[in-house]
Write a protein that binds this DNA or RNA. Structure first.
Lengths: 231, 231
DNA sequence: TAGATTGTTAATCGATTAACAATC
DNA sequence: TAGATTGTTAATCGATTAACAATC
């Protein structure tokens, strides 16, 4: 019984919220004060009804014939996602990907900031990368407690992922953004969210394949019986 | 009418296939010859019935009481995803993320290989990163045609994404793996797949928030009426 | 006012889960 | 044989889409 696979209601909605936020901030920068779901939908290649349903979960109230107040909408979405006050995060594993994430400036828009990184490699420990110190993993527990950091970004090799996860969880980490392909087992009360880039490529490959075969990238409904492979 | 938002049947299944593949390759490396959905499900924190349904779309046939032949299953999944013959890809935009992806060795398991990278920055053009040449974007069209490359990985700044996409599409690219937050407009016959890391963090944030509020990270069903925010 | 847009309720669609016969 | 597992059909669940009254 896989009990720690948590279900979250309205998952697709939550996943779409960041793109609304991004567009809204762009509109706000352009001086736009009101926006309708029709406009948002066009910009994001969605149906207007989807946008309306999505926004409603934040509790925002719009004006018929006008739409929504852009700044209010930004505030409601940020509050819903808990992105209104910046969450501090530690990154563990300063490889290529870890280094790239340390230099990614976009996290500030997601209410998150990497404040330090950890590794065990003596070559990396002591360096400063993108303005952030790389510390030895031995110092993780102490710093996590002193700085009350709750979120960790995991960019270690897959075969070390569980071991490192156990360490950082016992140090007090409550949420792990897992960039490794390893499935983590975490205790009750700890959230692990996997960022699986292979997923995305699987969808791309399949759509490309079916496009060249079938025609339009859409997989036909009932006729997947042919199979030129014998066992 | 957002016509280029393509629908693909069984999207969740396709997204799960890479994790089966990863586990199966591990089991194969350990010398395991047969595997049941019960075992796979336990390793991936899924329900056995989900695994069974997922695997069935590849056309694999199992043996009651035994399970599936590991190597056959690997072959069927790879064939379904079109990962059996290595697809060559170009990467555009040699920033932090682009560099990290160029050094990522895991793509070979996904039937994909980055063969060269492109940029317009004179400082970057001419370099060799992780054994791959960085060429000027001017050479993209010529090389794409000569090498018959169909897939591009887009890691340019978001505000250049559409412009660069137009260039590479006219050069013959058929599939774009888009790592920018910008929504791309692509013509009929071209597939654009967005890799949106903010999505993942939105889910993590929301689960963390509701865990500390509600209790177990599961969002309650019908009582999201309270809202301590007045307009 | 006329009409675009919101917000809600109902209908549809697809994915997950349950049930169970078939199989080795 | 007994029983674990497959594969299929049916039931449930949730998300998307459609319809439409309310509103400014």
């Amino acid at each position: 019984m896989p009990g720690n696979v948590m279900r979250i209601a309205k998952l697709p909605t939550i996943q779409r919220l960041p793109s609304y936020l991004r567009i809204l901030k762009m509109l706000h920068a352009e001086g736009r004060e009101q926006v309708s779901t029709t406009t948002l939908a066009a910009l994001l290649q969605l149906q207007a009804i989807v946008v309306r349903k999505d926004l409603s979960i934040t509790g925002i109230v719009g004006k018929p014939r006008v739409g929504y107040c852009v700044v209010d909408l930004i505030r409601f979405i940020e509050e819903y996602l808990d992105w209104n006050n910046t969450n501090e995060a530690f990154l563990i594993g300063v490889g290529h990907l870890g280094t790239a994430l340390m230099g990614y400036s976009g996290f500030e828009d997601n209410g998150m900031r990497i404040v330090a990184a950890f590794d065990t490699d003596p070559e990396k420990v002591g360096q400063t990368i993108h303005g952030k110190q790389v510390l030895h993993l031995d110092k993780f527990a102490d710093l996590t407690r002193r700085m009350h950091v709750q979120i960790a970004i995991l960019t270690v090799p897959a075969n070390h992922a569980q071991k490192v996860a156990d360490v950082i969880i016992s140090a007090g980490i409550r949420g792990i953004w897992n960039f490794t392909p390893a499935k983590l087992e975490v205790p009750e009360g700890v959230v692990s969210q996997q960022q699986n880039i292979a997923e995305g490529f699987a969808v791309l490959s399949t759509r490309l394949k079916h496009m060249s075969e079938g025609g339009s990238g859409k997989i036909p409904e009932g006729d997947e019986d042919e199979l030129d492979e014998e066992v």
